[in-house]
Simulated assay, not measured.
Amino acid sequence: MKIDEYLETLPENVLSGEDVQLPEKSLKDIFKFVKLKKDDIFYHLGCGDEKGVEIAVNEFGVKKAVGIDYNSDKIKKAKKNLEEKKIQVELICQDILNADISDATVILFWFTDENVTNQMLKKFENLKPETKIVTIWGPLPDCIPDKVEFPYIINKVPFKKAKSMQEQLLAIFGVKCVDFVTAWEFAERYTKAIGSPEIKNDRFLTIIQTLVIWINAKKLGVACGDDIPESIQTYIKLMKMNFDIDFEPMLKE
C-alpha cells in the first residue's frame, strides 16, 4: 500500500486536518495563544460544530463570534445545540471563499487545500491591520509568522513575506534545516494537539507524520544533509514490513 493510499484510510483524515473537529482543550489553548479578548470579533472558518464559537463567547467573552462552514447538516445541528443552550453566536452555511469577514479581528483558519489557502490569502490581505489569522501546522503561504507555539501559528495583517523556504522554516521550527529529531518533536506536538477519541495509537501516527515531515523537507531542499538518516530509513522499513505502508514512492516523487 502506498502512503497516500494509507492516509485516505485514517479516521477523518487526521493527518491533513481536513474535517477534523479540534478538541475543546486545543481550542482553549489556541484562544489563550492568540490572546482572545472581549473586544475581539472572532471568526471560525470551517467551524464544523459549534464548540469554537461557543468557547469564544462563554469563556473569553468576545464581542462577536461567527462560525462558517459549507456543510449544511453540521451548521443545522450546531444551531440547534446553541439554541438549546441559549448562546448568541452567528452560524453561517457558506463557502468561506464567498464569506464577508471584513470586520474580523481574529480568525481561526485550518485548511490544507492549496487552492483554498491561496485564494483566502488574497482575502486576508485586505483585512484591517493587526487582524490575526491563526493556522495549524503551517503558516499562510509564503508568509513569515508573527508568533509560533507549534502547531499553532499566527500571521498578522499586513503579512511579512518570506524571502525563501529556509527563512520560513527557521521562523516556524527555529532551525535552519529539518533532521529526524525536529521532525519527530513537531509531529508529536501536532498529533497531540488534534488528538481525539478516534486516535487509538498516537505513537503510530507520530511516526507516520514524522516521515511525512522529513520527506517533504527533503523534497523542498530543507532537510539536514544529503543522505537519508538511519532513523528515517529504519522507520520506512518498519512501516513497509509490519504494516505494508510504502513511503518509497513519496521519496521518488
Rank of each mutant, 00 (worst) to 15 (best):
F150T: 12
K160W: 11
K128Q: 00
F124T: 10
K161L: 08
N118Q: 13
Q166P: 09
L97K: 07
V175L: 10
M165K: 15
V175E: 11
F180N: 15
I96H: 01
L121D: 02
S102T: 09
L121S: 08
I107C: 03
I107G: 00
I101W: 05
T135A: 08
E114F: 09
N115G: 06
F150S: 03
M120C: 05
F173R: 13
E167C: 13
L108N: 14
L140W: 09
A104L: 09
N126D: 01
A99P: 07
T112R: 06
N155C: 07
D146Y: 11
I153A: 12
F150R: 14
G174F: 14
I92T: 00
W137F: 10
G138L: 14
E114D: 14
F124I: 13
N118W: 02
P151Q: 05
K160Y: 11
C93G: 05
M165Y: 13
K160S: 14
D113W: 06
N126A: 04
F124R: 12
W110A: 06
V106Q: 08
W110V: 15
I101N: 06
L97N: 04
C177L: 01
M165S: 13
L97I: 03
T135M: 01
A171K: 15
D142N: 12
I153L: 05
V157F: 00
V178A: 11
E114N: 12
C93A: 01
V181Q: 06
I133R: 14
V89T: 02
D179Y: 11
F173W: 15
I107Q: 05
S164N: 07
M120W: 03
T105Q: 00
G138H: 15
L169W: 15
T131S: 02
I96G: 03
F109R: 06
K163W: 13
D146A: 14
V157A: 02
E130R: 15
A183S: 15
Q119E: 01
T135Y: 05
C177Y: 13
F124H: 09
D113T: 04
P151G: 13
I154S: 10
I154P: 11
N155V: 10
K176Q: 04
I144S: 12
F109L: 02
M120G: 04
A99N: 02
P145C: 08
V157N: 04
A104R: 06
W110G: 07
E114G: 07
F109C: 07
G138D: 14
A162H: 09
K163P: 08
N98L: 05
L169K: 15
I154H: 14
P129H: 11
V106Y: 09
F159K: 07
E90Y: 08
D100C: 02
L91Q: 05
P139V: 05
I172A: 13
I96A: 01
T135R: 13
K176Y: 07
W110I: 10
F159H: 09
K122V: 06
D113L: 05
F111K: 04
G138P: 10
V106K: 12
V148Q: 09
T182H: 14
E149S: 15
Q94L: 08
A99Q: 01
E114M: 10
N115S: 05
D146V: 12
D113C: 02
I96R: 07
E149F: 14
I101S: 02
K123M: 03
N98R: 09
G174K: 15
